[in-house]
Amino acid sequence: MMRELYKKTKQLFPLGDLTEQRHDLVFVSIPHPFLSSLLRHLRDKEGFSHLVLLTAVDWLERGEFQLTYLLCNRSKAWDMGVRVVLPREGATMESIHTLWPTAATYQRELKEMFGIDFPGSPGVNDDFILEGWDDIPPYRRDFDTLKFAEARFTQRPGRESLDPAQHMAKHHSDGS
């Protein structure tokens, strides 16, 4: 049971509450300074050898970024998502490319798309998907895709739509 693993690990690390999403998928939180030692522990001692993904969630209204490190223990068919919360302003996180070299790609993308820095991660400052981007990191919640599109592209003329209720208010009303 993953609950036992959680209890065991909690004695070693300051884990937050356990979210049991499924019998084979849980999420835990940890303060960011402890992240890499927790991941190393899970990788080396608990069989979570596969880094499934690393991504960020922008909680703009709370002024925070959440980083989710999803690990998989294949032999037990367990998944554990480790959540780390960073202040949105000047978000910086320790790189884990030494644990999983492939993490460098994720970190490079997070730097570009969310503006979260991972000092020391190989190529973290290189353009990844966006070349010549001069706006704020586009996957942040405060980047408005619609506004961006409207500023850069023009609509083909000739489109207009009527609201059914308003149209009826003008052209039809029963017995009044």
């Binding site: 489109r159 207009e160 739509s161 009527l162 609201d163 059914p164 209720a165 149209h167 009826m168 052209h171 039809h172 029963d174």
Partner: peptide, 19 residues
Amino acid sequence: AIDMVVGEGEPTGAGDSGL
């Protein structure tokens, strides 16, 4: 992709916006 426009020959009536 969809606009609601006045449909020719479809008058506005009870329960039909005519669009």
